[in-house]
Design a binder for these strands. Structure first.
Length: 422
RNA sequence: GGAGGGGUGGCAGAGUGGUUGAUCGCACCGGUCUUGAAAACCGGAAUGUCCGCAAGGGCAUCGUGGGUUCAAAUCCCACCCCCUCCGCCA
């Protein structure tokens, strides 16, 4: 959410942001509603002022004068009630529009319709070349008894899976490595709730738009698709001590996504599943663009370091405007090389929001002048499993179908090579 | 699941229909005193929003949303959250 004052003063920026993000949001409509809102609000407030004034007189005035005031105020009350009703209706529309106002993409974000227009900014490592016929992760992991997709579907339904043996060990190893590296960077480890209340999702910007992609419980709670939701809501409605900024969290949580819009996509294997696990980097910092940008680069660098430590070839793309979420100012994706598909596939997504989320969450700090300001928020993937296993096992496979364990993971996995029947 | 008690400003905690945006305390800021600090004393200070160049003023905010009333922190209803005891349970 943006400040209505800012919106009013920068209508062309908002219109441009809406166009760039390929949204059909119309600022003019919001401004028209806001004009009506301000008009009615003025009327309501002056009626209330009249009421308050009379109220003060009634206590100190004689019986006769009091009776006259009561009659007059009865009329004011009736008028006020119809005006308040009108205001309430306008506010409904206003709220509906306000949560649809897009945040403004950074100048450096390329314009485009969808992910095909994302701009590659960097590649790291060479695409793995095999002198044998390579297998895809489904075949490899099934062969090595690391995963069970058939029974996964039997038990959990479409996109269900079990990770077993080295598949499970590798997952724990990836998490542990990620946690260790983030600890070194000063991130506090947090295990965040995935079962969250609606407010947390409204605050982070996943609702009201993303209702379709979320699982909902019979108690009207939701299953979050990322630890970002719980971590951001952690300080909802708080004024955080500015001395504590930046707050850096390494959040672990299971993640649930209905993938409502992706029914035909990636139906095989571990690329797109309904339930997965993720370690997320999250930062709350002072409300300063340069600081947000610096932390954004830092989050990317940390995630890259993780991928480099794992030795997985990847590239970095700057997401184009059409591929940005409503609240995102800029987003980088890291895409890992997947030999079986001969493609880079997204494993990390790192973005910043300015105060878009914290305004909704009412998350503030007191700046040096003592003024309350909304903090800036950023978040980015550190390690998303099992998707990351896809490129890991495919890139590290050997001719005999075994998988080398990346050096950095060996101490956690307890083995150098994953072979059948282990 | 059953029974009871609560949600008030940064914190703590009064306040049961009318100058109450809200006593007192702690913390905070300024001043006096002091070589400096502490203590003591004096004073200041909530947040949002609207009008205004400003000074200043209006409105809203006592968990949330409704209702009663000329008037609600205070009365009524619904919901949310917290605490205590019992039951169940990883």
């Amino acid at each position: 959410m943006l400040d209505i004052k800012f919106i009013r003063e920068n209508q062309s920026l908002i219109a441009e942001a809406s166009r760039k993000k390929r949204l059909d949001f119309k600022v003019e409509e919001l401004i028209a509603i806001d004009d009506r809102r301000l008009g009615i609000l003025g009327e309501v407030e002056s009626l209330r002022a009249k009421q308050n004034e009379a109220s003060a007189q009634i206590v100190s005035v004689g019986a006769e004068e009091k009776a006259a005031l009561l009659v007059e105020m009865k009329n004011v009350k009736d008028l006020l009630q119809t005006k308040e009703e009108e205001l309430k209706e306008i506010m409904k529309d206003w709220q509906k529009q306000m949560v649809q106002v897009p945040n403004i993409p950074d100048m450096s974000v390329p314009e485009g319709d969808d992910d095909s227009a994302n701009a590659e900014s960097k590649t790291w490592g060479d695409k793995t070349v095999f002198d044998f016929t390579a297998r895809d992760h489904v075949e490899l992991m099934t062969m090595l008894d690391m995963a069970d997709f058939e029974r996964g579907t039997k038990v959990a339904g479409f996109r269900g899976y079990f990770l077993k043996n080295a598949g499970a060990r590798l997952s724990f190893a990836l998490w542990q490595l990620a946690f260790d590296m983030l600890q070194d960077e000063g991130f506090a480890p947090v295990m965040a709730p995935s079962l969250v209340r609606r407010e947390a999702l409204l605050g982070t910007g996943y609702l009201p738009q993303g209702e379709e992609d979320l699982y909902k419980t019979q108690d009207a709670d939701y299953l979050a698709g990322t630890a970002e939701v719980g971590l951001m809501a952690l300080h909802m409605d708080e004024i955080v001590d500015s001395a504590k900024l930046p707050i850096k969290y390494a959040g672990f949580s299971p993640c649930f996504r209905r993938e409502a819009g992706s029914h035909g996509k990636d139906t095989k294997g571990l690329i797109r599943v309904h339930e997965f696990f993720k370690i997320e980097q999250l930062i709350l910092c002072e409300a300063n663009h340069a600081e947000s940008v610096a932390w954004h680069e830092k989050l990317l660098a940390t995630a890259e370091k993780y991928m480099q430590t794992l030795g997985i070839p990847y590239r970095v793309v700057v997401n184009c405007t059409g591929d940005l979420g409503l609240g995102q100012v800029k987003k980088y994706d890291i895409e890992a090389w997947v030999p079986g598909e001969q493609k880079y596939r997204e494993t990390h997504s790192i973005s910043y929001f300015h105060d878009f989320q914290t305004r909704r969450l009412n998350l503030k700090y007191r700046d040096a002048e003592g003024k309350l300001r909304f903090v800036h928020s950023l978040n980015g993937t550190m390690s998303a499993t099992p998707r990351l296993l896809v490129s890991l096992v495919e890139n590290y496979q050997q001719a005999d179908g075994s998988i080398k364990v990346p050096l950095a993971l060996q101490k956690y996995v307890g083995q150098e090579i994953i072979r059948a029947n282990q």
